[in-house]
Amino acid sequence: MTTPSPIIRSAHVPRPREETFELFTAEIGSWWPLPTHGIFEAEAGGVFFDDGRLVERSTDGRESVWAEIVSWVDGERIVLNWFPGRSADDASEVEFRFDDDDAGTRVTIEHRGWERFGPDAFARRRGYLGPNAWGSILDNFGDAAEPKVPAETLSRLINGYDAFFAEAEKGGFGPAPDGEFGAAEVIAHIGLNDAAMASVCQALIHGTEPRFDNHRCHDADALARWIDEAGSNEASDLSGLIAKGRAIARQVVGLVSRLNEQQLAADVHCEMEHDGAIVLDDARPWSAIVIDAQTGHHLPGHIGQLQDLRP
């Protein structure tokens, strides 16, 4: 009896190697099918390469570590100790490789020791185990739809985030007035709100029930978890928190770029809280929330809040 051979899968991507690597890693939460291939399922907020780990975050700030990075060579390869839903001493090994390929990049996934594959994590959702649930997906590579989100719309979102994080990076914040957000809470609030928006985008993409509420991004425990996990709870050092916020903001932009016209216009039930009162409990077209409200009111409002925190 021999040891099972590694599972090797590869695909062609029409982009230069460095860019492909960057998209694969920095936007992993934009493309990874989290509702079906994650720990937190409908509550998933994103997945990130962060601080030597691959970590999934929930919409209430919890973390689940999927893997530890064994080796990372920019633009070339990543080797992971792979243990979603299990402990680090109970892992198999996954390697992602990026090679120059005919006018683009060949992305190769090699999963070794697959007989130890973490079953608890991904066996949770039974629906996709059926014989016809998957199909020959590799055959459909060429069929990627044209992007429906205009570049101008995406730019508004990107610029909105840039302005917010630029304000946060300027620093110089004083203590918060009693009962109000300090700078760390404001940045964490934007991150948790992004996690909630990411989960709605994922639901729209994967055909599960989208629902948006912003309770968790006001929740003291969720905010504390988000700040604590970022490793920068001192008002004087917001860098970890800002990096964490930028990472999920980029994934939200990546997710929005994948939405088609129907998904952007889809009515999503929204339950919004402001100053402790429910201000919206109704369906809204998703673009009105994720783009218009985010860039028109939400981010500018919190930029103003950061400015007011300066002595």
Binding site: R9, L23, W31, H37, I109, I137, F141
Partner: peptide, 12 residues
Amino acid sequence: TALAAFVEHANK
């Protein structure tokens, strides 16, 4: 599935 999702994202 994971790889197909990435290729679709990268194509867009």
